[in-house]
């Protein structure tokens, strides 16, 4: 792709609903995370470290917010829908929220990149091209979810002392200082799934591709799949909970359906739907 081509066409696959949305994309990868099933166990986060060559940065840098956890499990103590803040004890436990790049269709990170290192792919993914990235960090500043991680240092120098480096996944690069990175929905696994389907001359089936976090989840709270495939598990969950892409608020036939997208009102159009946590009142 020539520079001219990039500058003209980088937003080809960044379409609002009015412009036809995602309906002619090859795939539309998405997730549904059931907070009734999620126990906050953190297995997804560590699986992500194992799959995606995430460096450990140590205590000091973690405390500065420089941890490279593409997937972090947030924990909140308050329950705005339930009240109970005045109680002596934390009676309904904590509220866990696994947060990875929400792969927004109207991603605020994309238009601010001065070099088109982040853009939307024909699969509906918010891509980050490491070798284009010049480290301006505008994208990170513009992400309302704080889910972009910057390599402030050459973490690889200390993160994988031999022979720990033998665990590195050759399917994706190890990022160096000055490069922004984030969850890719395990694009290397998507590639493998698509290649296998192509070789066998068939469509990608639901379940062919599974991200590392969804794969390891002991409760299968994370469901990953293709929204273009109406029979996929993830499509069915979105449909059952009446969450639609291309909207900044959902109008549901039953207000008690649990699906919602985090900070949807910002019109980021994220590809991750959460199903509400459940507690005895």
């Amino acid at each position: 792709m020539s520079l001219k081509n990039i500058l003209e066409n980088w937003s080809d696959y960044r379409r609002t609903a009015e412009d036809g949305g995602h309906h002619d994309y090859e795939h539309m990868w998405a997730m549904a995370i059931d907070l009734n099933k999620c126990t906050g166990c953190n297995a997804c986060s560590v699986a992500c470290y194992a799959e995606n060559n995430l460096p450990t940065v140590g205590k000091k840098r973690m405390m500065k917010g420089q941890g490279m956890h593409w997937l972090r499990v947030e924990r909140y103590w308050d329950e705005p829908d339930m009240g109970g803040d005045e109680k002596e004890y934390q009676e309904r436990g904590g509220s866990f929220l696994p947060m990875m790049c929400q792969q927004c269709n109207a991603a605020p990170c994309e238009p601010v990149c001065p070099v088109a290192a982040t853009y939307h792919t024909p699969d509906g993914l918010n891509a980050q091209v490491y070798n284009r990235c010049i480290g301006s960090r505008y994208c990170s500043n513009n992400c309302p979810y704080r889910l972009r991680y910057f390599n402030f240092y050459s973490y690889y120098e200390e993160s994988w002392p031999e022979p720990l480096n033998m665990q590195l996944n050759p399917d994706l690069s190890v990022r160096d200082k000055g490069v922004m990175e984030k969850c890719t929905f395990c694009v290397q696994r998507i590639r493998v799934g698509k290649d296998a389907a192509r070789r066998e001359g068939r469509e990608v089936h639901d379940g062919d591709v599974i991200t590392a976090c969804a794969q390891t989840c002991p409760t299968e709270a994370i469901v990953f799949g293709d929204m273009m495939d109406k029979s996929s598990k993830v499509s069915k969950i979105w449909a059952a909970h009446e969450v639609e892409l291309g909207k900044h608020e959902q109008h549901k036939s039953d207000p008690d359906l649990r699906g919602y997208r985090v900070l949807e009102g910002l019109n980021t159009d994220p590809c991750v739907t959460y199903l509400e946590r459940v507690r005895e009142a």
């Binding site: 509220s95 929220l97 919602y260 900070l263 459940v278 507690r279």
Partner: peptide, 12 residues
């Protein structure tokens, strides 16, 4: 959550 509806809870 300071009113951001990050984790929403529904009654059982």
């Amino acid at each position: 959550q300071v009113g951001r509806r990050l984790v929403s809870t529904v009654a059982a």
